[in-house]
Simulated scan of single mutants.
Amino acid sequence: MSELSAHHVGLTVERLDRAVDFYRDVLGLDVVSRFSVGGEAFATGVGVDGASAEFAHLDAGGVRVELVSYDPEGDHVADSTVTVNQPGAAHVGLSTADLDAFYESLPDTVEPQSPPQRTESGTRILFLRDPEGNLVEVLEA
């Protein structure tokens, strides 16, 4: 078997521009590229008849975050009732050297689940949601 390496973490979003604005302006990630993909091979590959999609790739310090908006759009599943302990739940994990400074810099439109917390392992964490309802964990490294 050939070796695998990480390429990206992907999140499906409803409004690509809104999601890009959040990940770029609030979380400080750099937009690496934006592109669209369609055609029969893509639709067959993703298992959605007639699918096409708009993509944005952002650099999260060695990890690529891929935001993708599909046409046709599927049913919305991420909302405030989805929690990290539910099978199938996903989140993006990012780190910062100063979690308190990050927390204080959040705009009023972003409501974290709690102030920064120190876990039993000693790690400081903060969870928030992007404008699409996806969970984002920020931890102090």
Rank of each mutant, 00 (worst) to 15 (best):
Met1Asn: 10
Met1Ser: 14
Met1Thr: 13
Ser2His: 11
Glu3Asp: 07
Glu3Arg: 08
Leu4Thr: 06
Ala6His: 14
Ala6Ser: 11
His7Ala: 10
His7Leu: 11
Val9Cys: 15
Gly10Leu: 01
Leu11Arg: 15
Val13Pro: 02
Asp17Gln: 09
Ala19Glu: 05
Ala19Val: 05
Ala19Thr: 06
Val20Tyr: 07
Val20Pro: 01
Val20Gly: 05
Asp21Asn: 07
Tyr23Arg: 04
Tyr23Ile: 00
Arg24Glu: 15
Arg24Thr: 14
Val26Arg: 14
Val26Gly: 13
Leu27Val: 09
Gly28Met: 02
Asp30Phe: 00
Asp30Met: 04
Val31Pro: 00
Val32Pro: 01
Phe35Arg: 11
Gly38Glu: 06
Gly38Trp: 04
Gly39Thr: 05
Glu40Ala: 11
Ala41Lys: 12
Ala41Phe: 07
Phe42Val: 06
Ala43Ile: 09
Gly45Leu: 09
Gly47His: 12
Val48Asp: 06
Val48Met: 02
Asp49Lys: 10
Asp49Arg: 14
Gly50Trp: 02
Gly50Phe: 00
Ala51Leu: 05
Ser52Phe: 03
Ser52Gly: 15
Ala53Val: 09
Glu54Ser: 13
Phe55Met: 01
Phe55Asp: 05
Ala56Cys: 06
Ala56Val: 08
His57Asp: 10
Leu58Lys: 12
Asp59Thr: 03
Ala60Met: 02
Gly61Cys: 08
Gly62Glu: 00
Gly62Met: 00
Val63Phe: 06
Val63Ser: 06
Arg64Asp: 05
Glu66Ser: 03
Val68Glu: 07
Ser69Asp: 10
Tyr70Gln: 01
Glu73Trp: 02
Gly74Asp: 08
Asp75Trp: 07
His76Gly: 07
Val77His: 12
Val77Phe: 13
Ser80Thr: 13
Ser80His: 14
Thr81Trp: 11
Thr81Ser: 15
Thr81Phe: 08
Val82Phe: 08
Thr83Cys: 04
Asn85Gln: 10
Gln86Ile: 08
Gly88Asp: 09
Gly88His: 04
Ala90Val: 14
Leu94Phe: 06
Ser95Trp: 07
Ser95Asn: 08
Ser95Glu: 13
Thr96Arg: 08
Asp100Leu: 08
Ala101His: 10
Phe102Arg: 11
Tyr103Asp: 08
Asp108Lys: 09
Thr109Met: 01
Thr109Ser: 15
Glu111Thr: 15
Glu111Arg: 14
Gln113Pro: 00
Gln113Leu: 15
Ser114Asp: 14
Pro115Asn: 14
Pro115Gln: 15
Arg118Ala: 10
Thr119Cys: 04
Glu120Thr: 12
Thr123Ala: 13
Thr123Leu: 14
Leu126Gly: 11
Phe127Pro: 00
Leu128Pro: 02
Arg129Asp: 00
Arg129Thr: 03
Arg129Ala: 00
Pro131Asn: 01
Gly133Glu: 07
Asn134Gly: 00
Leu135Ser: 03
Glu137Phe: 05
Glu137Gln: 11
Glu140Ala: 02
Glu140Lys: 04
Ala141Ser: 12
